[in-house]
């Protein structure tokens, strides 16, 4: 096996000859003679985002940590971004790409308010809904992956659709979309999603779920994620979106932790079995 990561996934030089940089645009033609690749892997990353639909809204949460590899680099990064009164976007993955998307969403919001911004009930109906926002973001993500310059994120878009029903859907760096009553990105897809599905197995269960139960389920999942995800922390943001708007809390602390289970874990780390 070749031990140079640069060569992985590429045609072998000894068979196909070396990479021909001739056609690369000038801005990309560097000494290496290879295309720019630094935009094609994440650097500073956020971990899971989790969300649950309940009968009149959506609960979404993500912790405040931005990791530099395995280093817990920034502990005050808010990865839930509200959009007008109807939607919240949760960002997993690369933090600089999140900041780019955040600026993009801000300019979109300004444009929307410029063309039909009145602060009354009638105008609220015409506000861009979470569904509209999700469609837009999916096109942005797919466009960027088609440029071979993906935005390295997994997004959860939640809020209300035009008719006022709760909406929750995801987009990832490939532009793939998916929707379900409960969603989780990153490690959460493995650790939190099964727990959330136990509470909300299907659409009908989500219609019966009340806000308190939804928030409790999400908080429980944040705790489990902190127990088992090594790129997580105990401070997180949680948002509830319903008809009354977005209720975003950015400095929540995990409650009622119990590490008793840790003593039972054997077989790796510093212990000798």
């Amino acid at each position: 096996m070749n031990h140079f990561p640069e060569a992985w996934g590429r045609p072998r030089d000894d068979i196909y000859g070396s990479y021909n940089p001739q056609f690369l645009p000038n801005s990309h033609a560097q000494q290496s003679g290879h295309p720019t690749t630094h935009t094609q892997s994440p650097i500073v990353t956020g971990t899971s985002v989790i969300a649950v639909k309940y009968k009149d809204g959506v609960v979404i949460a993500a912790d405040n940590l931005a990791s530099y590899g395995s280093l817990a680099r920034f502990t005050d990064v808010h990865r839930l971004k509200p959009f007008n009164k109807k939607a919240v976007v949760g960002f997993g993955g690369d933090v600089s790409d999140m900041q780019y998307l955040d600026r993009l969403l801000n300019s979109l919001d300004v444009k929307e308010n410029y063309s039909h911004g009145h602060d009354d009930a009638e105008s609220d109906k015409a506000l861009m809904s979470a569904k509209n926002l999700h469609t837009y973001l999916s096109k942005v993500m797919y466009k960027r992956r088609s440029d071979f310059n993906p935005l390295w994120n997994a997004l959860l878009v939640c809020g209300l659709s035009e008719d006022g029903t709760p909406f929750l859907a995801s987009v990832d760096l490939l532009g793939t979309t998916f929707s379900a009553p409960t969603l989780a990105t990153g490690f959460g897809a493995h650790l939190a999603q099964p727990i959330l599905r136990r509470v909300v197995p299907d659409e009908a269960a989500s219609k019966a779920l009340d806000k308190e139960a939804a928030v409790a389920a999400v908080k429980e999942c944040m705790k489990v994620l902190f127990y088992r995800d090594a790129r997580s922390m105990n401070e997180y943001s949680i948002a509830v979106v319903d008809k009354s708007g977005v209720d975003l809390k950015q400095k929540e602390k995990l409650e009622g932790q119990s590490w008793a289970f840790a003593e039972q874990i054997k077989g790796y780390g510093t212990q000798t079995v």
Binding site: S115, A126, M128, S129, T135, K139
Partner: peptide, 15 residues
Amino acid sequence: RLTYDRPIALADITA
């Protein structure tokens, strides 16, 4: 309809 999945506002298209 393609980018936002919504019918365009009449005030918008008129502008």
